[in-house]
């Protein structure tokens, strides 16, 4: 009971904080949209149709931009743990009877909700680009984005617990997540990639989350939807378990 109460209160706190820092929302959405603008502006005519002619690059890259939005929001959510732990409210939470998992799940839950709201703004551009966005498609895309968000915040929390400085955290996250995102089919179809790159993309869980999202949005490529959804859900579960385990285990250190 205390865990659920603490989780609910900490989640509410994250949402209030977000509403009182609109600059964070703008930063999370604006950067992916600018990247998208430059990519499609530079390559769309040269590339033409993608995904077996079912889509053009302009619309095809939108799911990737939505996932990039989620990624930025997830980094913000994770990085707040470092500040909270050093000089914020988390110090009091860590000496309270609330279980460690409630801290992790509140960060993951509230952080994901915030990330998904921001990603929705990006997805809503699809109809403007001539791609039909059904309710079922949107819900499926949100589910896939939720998998990405949950997994990345969980991983981020584990990393934020180990790394003491926000600078160090940024460095590691940029070194790991940006390459992961670039080789995940976010900006080019995996099946069109060179052989060695295709191997790397196939072991990247983000690739499968993008495939699941495109499956929901009717931009199917050659990747199996069943595998895509299984890997995405597994990735999210891994993130939850890793985040909760790290905070619960590391609460008492010497």
């Amino acid at each position: 009971m205390i865990g659920l109460r603490a989780m609910s209160a900490l989640s509410k706190r994250e949402l209030i904080r977000q509403m009182r820092q609109p600059s964070r929302i703008i930063a999370s959405i604006a950067t992916p949209l600018l990247i998208w603008l430059f990519i499609v502006g530079g390559f769309s005519k040269a590339v033409g149709d993608v995904a077996g002619g079912q889509s053009n690059l302009t619309a095809y890259t939108i799911p990737g931009m939505a996932s990039l939005t989620v990624m930025f929001a997830s980094i913000f959510a994770s990085i707040s743990l470092i500040q909270d732990r050093q000089d914020g409210v988390l110090r009091a939470a860590l000496v309270s009877p609330a279980p460690g998992w409630s801290i992790a799940l509140s960060k993951i839950g509230a952080g994901s909700l915030i990330a998904l709201i921001q990603a929705m703004v990006v997805l809503l551009t699809l109809p403007l680009l001539g791609h039909e966005l059904t309710l079922v498609g949107a819900l499926g895309a949100i589910a896939a984005l939720a998998c990405i968000s949950i997994a990345l915040i969980g991983l981020g929390l584990a990393l934020a617990w180990i790394v003491d400085s926000t600078q160090g955290f940024h460095g590691v996250m940029n070194a790991v997540l940006m390459p992961m995102w670039l080789v995940s089919g976010a900006v080019f179809p995996v099946e069109d990639a060179a052989g060695w790159l295709r191997v790397i993309t196939l072991v990247n869980p983000l690739t499968w989350a993008h495939a699941a999202m495109r499956d929901a949005l009717g931009m199917s490529d050659q990747m199996s939807p069943a595998i895509a959804w299984s890997v995405s859900i597994g990735f999210a579960l891994f993130g939850i378990l890793l985040g909760a385990w790290t905070i619960s285990r590391s609460r008492q250190t010497s």
């Binding site: 009971m1 205390i2 109460r5 603490a6 609910s8 209160a9 900490l10 706190r13 209030i16 904080r17 009182r20 820092q21 914020g88 409210v89 009091a92 939470a93 309270s96 009877p97 609330a98």
Partner: peptide, 18 residues
Amino acid sequence: DVLLTVRENLQLAGAMHG
């Protein structure tokens, strides 16, 4: 939490103690 009101901080403290 400096972005929360005093009341919101105290409500959070109550929840953390169940």
